[in-house]
Nucleic acid binder design. Structure first.
Lengths: 200, 200
DNA sequence: TTACCAAGTGAGAGACCTCTTACACAGGAG
DNA sequence: CTCCTGTGTAAGAGGTCTCTCACTTGGTAA
């Protein structure tokens, strides 16, 4: 991390992951490349391959880090939301939206289909923990069965992800909606889904 | 379209668009390339450039076609859904989901941010018509204001798109949910959002 | 001090892409 | 019949990417 680094970087592995987040936020998954990350860090394009066997393995590590950070953001948001289980669960939508707008690393990165081929225990563990946290928040609102808690999580994640994508792609009349306004919409939609799961 | 085509293809422009749909459905936007579309049609990689100035213009034409087809699918689904305005609007979620699963061309293609740089009146017209149709369906459920109809459309599109992405990326426990089951979930979520917009 | 090893480097192979250029062909208008 | 125009081709320039290979560097341990 030192500006006057010598021949050795010091902690390239971690730097690759954080630089990958920056790149994702700026250009999206579509234009993400290992070479660009290396350029950004001022190392040779071969350097990343000392730490990751290939592009997908780097992305898998990013996925694991994103799952971890997102989980933290969700836990923090839930705690800010107070004690009411519905508010806590609804806050997931806002946390997700803000996290992805900031980092570009949403469920399309965390659960990217192409990463399923990469064996990565760390990633699996982080996604498992993330899902467990979501399920916990959903169960707390008092749905009768585990299956319904899962379905509720999926619904909330879907709506949060949907608002996030539409925001990013400029669907909302070319930026007529601010980040805050869109976050509020996402939360309102999540609340509606939670209420619907309750009345049944 | 004739198998034994001679030197000239016949209707390459239209074929490029339909072949692009196939490619999108198979490999996704990330791996879409003009060269691959040309290969698929058995023409040289230069041929598409007789009809489109560049990759983005071809994608813009695909976007226009997708907006048109999606609108047709939505209208058809609404008519199948009967006369109840809420059912008609909710059917949008199912139509969207099924259309994108089938074609790979969803709002992330139709409203892709990178296409905003391409001047394409046909595309603008198709997206306008699509949005108008959606707004009509939303207005019919009796929301008090235009603004709220817009917000309701956005919410339904968001949830439909969210379910679609999660389904495509394998978020639902590696395919534990079928297409039909997921479509049903999307419709149920849309119904919840419509009900929430009504109680207010 | 030496010798080792993890983690860099530069060069480049091989693949693929977008897009350009010069040329070839076919069908229709004159 | 001839020429024009539209639409195809072959070839390739110029770019980027992933990943490999032989080599270098500098900190650590014997």
């Amino acid at each position: 991390m030192s500006r006057d680094r010598g021949y050795h970087h010091g902690d390239l592995r971690a730097s690759l992951i954080t630089a990958s987040f920056e790149l994702l936020a700026e250009v999206g998954l579509r234009r993400f490349s290992v070479a660009a990350v290396a350029r950004r860090l001022g190392v040779s394009s071969a350097a990343p391959y000392r730490h990751f066997p290939g592009r997908d393995h780097l992305l898998s590590a990013v996925s694991a880090a994103a799952a971890h950070d997102l989980r933290s953001a969700i836990v923090a948001a839930a705690d800010r939301a107070g004690a009411d289980p519905s508010s806590r669960l609804a806050s997931v939508a806002e946390a997700y939206f803000r996290y992805v707008v900031r980092t570009g690393a949403g469920f399309h990165v965390i659960y990217a289909a192409e990463l399923y081929a990469v064996p990565d225990e760390a990633r699996r563990e982080q996604t498992r923990a993330l899902m467990a946290t979501l399920l916990e928040l959903a169960s707390a609102v008092g749905v009768p069965s585990h299956r319904q808690a899962v379905a509720l999580v999926e619904a909330i994640v879907a709506v949060a992800h949907g608002y996030t994508t539409l925001f990013a792609e400029g669907f909302f009349a070319q930026g007529a909606l601010t980040v805050d306004a869109t976050a509020a919409r996402a939360v309102a939609a999540a609340e509606a889904l939670i209420r619907a799961a309750g009345d049944r």
